[in-house]
Amino acid sequence: MARKIRVLVAKAGLDGHDRGAKVVASAMRDAGFEVIYTGLHQTPEMIVQAAVQEDVDAVALSILSGAHMTLFPRVLELMREKGIGDVLLTGGGIIPKADMTALRQMGVGELFGPGTSTTAIIEYIRGAAPGGAASRSAKAGSAR
């Protein structure tokens, strides 16, 4: 059977505004993705364990609290530690341009601000997370 793009959508940190994340998650579902939605208040550890267990192609974080300069690097670090550094880390929220650039240089993917169309996000993930899950498990030869 054809493989599906699997995306983890998580609200990292303390802000409780999940409207945006839900809208994006629904749009991804409508685009044929399998979206694993974790809900609010996720720690980087929770996010990365979920990403490993769910064997996702991309992790999309929604951060509106201003803590993006802490949370994105921490998630990225844990992803590399757990051997899923090749999975796309992307996201969105209220993030200044300069911070977006800084995070990109660290290895985070494209980040999206307010007003982005869901189509743009979906197209980006389609392009940037190709075939990750299946080929990775084959390489690792693990039961995951």
Binding site: S26, R29, F33, V35, I36, Y37, E54
Partner: peptide, 8 residues
């Protein structure tokens, strides 16, 4: 597509 929300 699907939304898999049981982890919540």
């Amino acid at each position: 597509g699907a939304i898999l929300g049981d982890r919540v």
